[in-house]
Simulated assay, not measured.
Amino acid sequence: MNTPDIGKNLPSPGHPAVAAYLADGYDSVVGMSSRFAAAICARLLRLQTEEGVHGPIAEIGAFEGRFFIALAHALEPGELALAIDIFSWPNPEVKDRFEANCFRHGINPGQRVTIKGDAGAMRPSDLIGHAGGRKLRFVHIDGEHSRAALAKDLALATACLDEGGMIVLDDMLHPGYPTLMVAVQHYLDANPEIVPLCIIDRETIVGAAKFVLCQRRWFERYQTRMLAIFKDQIWPLGADFEPHWCLVLSQDTRLAQIT
Rank of each mutant, 00 (worst) to 15 (best):
residue 51 E to V: 00
residue 52 G to C: 03
residue 52 G to Y: 02
residue 52 G to I: 03
residue 55 G to C: 05
residue 56 P to H: 11
residue 57 I to A: 09
residue 58 A to W: 15
residue 61 G to W: 07
residue 61 G to K: 05
residue 64 E to M: 13
residue 65 G to P: 06
residue 70 A to H: 04
residue 70 A to Y: 08
residue 76 E to Q: 13
residue 76 E to A: 10
residue 76 E to T: 03
residue 79 E to H: 01
residue 80 L to F: 10
residue 80 L to E: 08
residue 81 A to L: 11
residue 84 I to W: 13
residue 87 F to M: 02
residue 91 N to D: 07
residue 92 P to K: 08
residue 92 P to R: 07
residue 93 E to L: 02
residue 95 K to Q: 14
residue 95 K to S: 00
residue 96 D to W: 03
residue 96 D to N: 14
residue 98 F to H: 06
residue 98 F to E: 02
residue 99 E to R: 10
residue 99 E to H: 03
residue 99 E to L: 15
residue 100 A to S: 12
residue 102 C to K: 05
residue 102 C to S: 07
residue 102 C to N: 06
residue 102 C to I: 06
residue 102 C to R: 08
residue 103 F to M: 11
residue 109 P to G: 04
residue 110 G to T: 09
residue 112 R to Q: 13
residue 112 R to V: 11
residue 115 I to P: 07
residue 115 I to K: 13
residue 116 K to T: 13
residue 117 G to I: 09
residue 118 D to H: 00
residue 120 G to L: 07
residue 120 G to A: 01
residue 122 M to S: 05
residue 123 R to W: 14
residue 123 R to D: 14
residue 124 P to H: 15
residue 128 I to V: 14
residue 128 I to Y: 10
residue 129 G to D: 12
residue 129 G to W: 14
residue 129 G to V: 12
residue 130 H to S: 12
residue 131 A to D: 12
residue 133 G to W: 11
residue 133 G to C: 04
residue 134 R to A: 13
residue 134 R to F: 10
residue 134 R to D: 09
residue 135 K to H: 15
residue 135 K to T: 12
residue 137 R to A: 10
residue 137 R to N: 03
residue 139 V to G: 09
residue 139 V to A: 10
residue 139 V to R: 10
residue 140 H to T: 05
residue 141 I to W: 04
residue 141 I to Q: 01
residue 141 I to Y: 06
residue 142 D to E: 01
residue 142 D to P: 01
residue 143 G to C: 03
residue 144 E to R: 03
residue 144 E to L: 10
residue 147 R to Q: 07
residue 151 A to L: 00
residue 153 D to S: 05
residue 156 L to M: 14
residue 156 L to F: 15
residue 157 A to H: 12
residue 157 A to D: 12
residue 161 L to C: 05
residue 162 D to T: 07
residue 162 D to Q: 13
residue 163 E to N: 15
residue 166 M to S: 04
residue 166 M to Q: 13
